[in-house]
Write a protein that binds this DNA or RNA. Sequence first.
DNA 1: TCAAAAGTGTTATCACTACACCCATGG
DNA 2: CCATGGGTGTAGTGATAACACTTTTGA
Lengths: 236, 236
Amino acid sequence: MKYSNQKRLLVAVDCIIFGFDGTEYKLLLIQRGFAPEKEKWSLMGGFVQPDESLDEAATRILNQLTGLHDVYLEQLQAFSKPDRDPIERVIAVSYVALIDIKKYNRQISNEFHAHWFPMNSLPKLIFDHQDMVTAALNRLRYKAAFHPILFELLPEKFTLPQLQTLYEGLFDTKIDKRNFTRKVLSSNILKKEKDKDKSSSKKGAFYYSIDEQVYKDNFQNFLNFIPKNELNPQTE
Amino acid sequence: MKYSNQKRLLVAVDCIIFGFDGTEYKLLLIQRGFAPEKEKWSLMGGFVQPDESLDEAATRILNQLTGLHDVYLEQLQAFSKPDRDPIERVIAVSYVALIDIKKYNRQISNEFHAHWFPMNSLPKLIFDHQDMVTAALNRLRYKAAFHPILFELLPEKFTLPQLQTLYEGLFDTKIDKRNFTRKVLSSNILKKEKDKDKSSSKKGAFYYSIDEQVYKDNFQNFLNFIPKNELNPQTE
DNA sequence: TCAAAAGTGTTATCACTACACCCATGG
DNA sequence: CCATGGGTGTAGTGATAACACTTTTGA
């Protein structure tokens, strides 16, 4: 039995994939391999298959492009203008992914002509993909202001200066080092490691890692270095 | 031209419609008029038509049920388990609506066998609609903690005690009257009216209304009254 | 030895919490 | 005249913001 007299539509998933290279935020884009807009820059996406949920589709697509499993992935919103794709109507559900840029496997990316673009010099994107990126960035800012998710952009072990750069980059602001340290550590989400990262200074900075136990419990009790006026209303 | 070799799917919109009767939160449900699950309680929903966006579909559906225009409506998230509808695969995009329960037109509702249920005594819902309601409530709590949206549940003119009851009901908490007043008024979002509502006390409580100008500017600089541990992480 | 980044404490201000009495009115 | 709900101020506490010098070490 089926529902009759109703039009069926293509449903796609598009992934907004953020990375951080230590200095700035980057976005992973591919050169589209088929018409329309062949060879134009695009978010990584694909059609939802009959037997998979949207989350599963997003996970599959992300894995195809990056080779990664266990990536932070969150549904953003559906984009649905009837004419957003000139070929045929497609409902696109967008997902935000945060990945450690160092884990990204260049081998696999070449297959898709993928490239990391700095956020402030993105190429022109196909369809409404620029809207998706804007919405994703707003969501990331909003969420990161209250929840500890930026860790997802870093390796398992990272230093406090690295983490601070991440926050400063996202909100385009400067944070006092002492206040930052005190606040982050007071959440008890971070465990100090014994060794140091000497790659960016002679003295070296201690590594920290996530205390998974406290992380789960304190997910909401984090926050918020960000001047109020830097925060935009949620995009949804 | 079409995309070939891809399966097309039904796409529906489901509306989680919240109201407030002065004492408690209520949810507007309908008795489903067709199989499967005929006469079971359900969210108001419908299939997306070829020429409308999801927002337009949600607006249309909401108007069919309530007769209302200009309702607060926000996309929540897509629900997509392949077997969520036993008849056929349907991707459902859920929307949260906030309406002034008094404006609701009973005439129209009867056509759909609609009924307002108190949030703490909802009937069993079809499919995954209970998940949608739970997600919607989390979203509402989360958002209301930082943004002035609960006004949407009240008439244009309302009193401070009414507004306070709204917050207390949503977070199931008691708020000090003086602290509440000070905080709400300090946002400058409210304009005091000259007249009073005498329906709930002999002295009467002054009406307030939204200062639309300040409201737009200050959307983010609001509240929150809510104890930290009442706040769940966003559902998405 | 010095340049470059890491690390660390104190004070002032602001926001939030707790708390209790008077006011206006209709019945 | 009194019961009911509306309205108001202050003091204490905790969180945040501003601020500068010392430490380490590889080149």
